[in-house]
């Protein structure tokens, strides 16, 4: 008797699913260590393409793109996390207020409008107000679509924190500000951190919107990579991809661990 939870073949499906998800990444990661110039032939293990990323002919271009990606992601995710934290406080600790439903819809709007439509409308907006596309326009667009991603974990966390903790603090002579700083903020922190991390990855990940609002000459890592692969997949692209993959996995693991550690609210 296997019990009602068991269905034959579901394990196999899950494993197949994982295989499909991981095989391409694994293959690229392995080939990034290929010593050969050809992407089809295995020329033994080598780090030459990683060296090429940092010193090769395209190093300058990718270096600048990486710097842009990183700084944009940093500023956008931090700003978005701050805006989302304030919004979550209002939405979850603000009681019933006029416009709550509308505010909720607004926060989630960037998730509902198709990415390509956001890209088009943002480009049209910048062009109409006469803002030259470049670093600033990318940054503004990223802040906007990062807000709902930062909001989700922050709001979820805040919802799990009962109001009695702040009340207990107030009962024990804390002012409103002290109750926020000493009790609510530390309790919210895991949510804020994972919201920030997710926003960071989302910003780092974005291609479509960035591609529309970046302007000529300005590149982030995804747009630079896209430009390269249009001429065919080269080994140095695989090395860059593997590096970015590593960064993403690192960040998601961090977000996961922070969240799990923070789950313990008795």
């Amino acid at each position: 008797m296997k019990g009602v939870r068991h269905y034959p073949g579901f394990l196999a499906m899950t494993l197949a699913c994982l295989l499909v998800l991981y095989a391409p990444l694994a293959v690229v990661a392995v080939y990034s260590f290929n010593g050969s110039t050809s992407i089809t032939q295995w020329g033994g293990f080598s780090l030459r393409w990683y060296g090429d990323v940092f010193t090769g002919p395209e190093a300058g271009r990718f270096g600048q793109a990486a710097w842009n990606s990183l700084t944009i992601a940093l500023i956008a995710s931090t700003t978005a996390a701050a805006i989302a934290t304030a919004a979550a406080l209002a939405m979850i600790r603000g009681g019933a207020f006029h416009g709550r439903q509308a505010s909720f819809a607004l926060i989630n709007l960037p998730l509902m409008v198709p990415e390509i439509v956001i890209a088009v409308s943002t480009l049209i907006f910048f062009s109409t107000v006469g803002l030259t596309t470049g670093y600033l326009t990318i940054l503004l667009a990223h802040i906007t679509f990062c807000i709902p991603f930062a909001y989700l974990p922050i709001a979820a966390r805040l919802e799990g924190i009962e109001g009695t903790y702040e009340q207990a603090a107030r009962d024990l002579y804390a002012t409103r500000a002290q109750a926020f700083r000493l009790i609510l903020l530390p309790l919210m922190m895991p949510g804020v951190v994972s919201g920030w991390l997710l926003a960071f990855i989302i910003s780092l990940d974005d291609f479509i919107i960035t591609n529309f609002v970046k302007g000529a000459g300005m590149e982030t890592l995804p747009t630079a990579i896209f430009g390269s692969v249009k001429q065919g997949i080269k080994p140095n692209i695989m090395a860059i991809s593997t590096l970015m993959l590593g960064v993403s996995v690192l960040f998601v693991t961090a977000a996961y661990l922070v969240n799990r550690k923070g789950q313990k609210i008795p």
């Binding site: 991981y22 990444l25 291609f207």
Partner: peptide, 12 residues
């Protein structure tokens, strides 16, 4: 895998 850059996944 979802958190890995979509472009990189597609290229892979």
């Amino acid at each position: 895998p979802y958190w890995v850059n979509l472009l990189i996944r597609t290229v892979s």
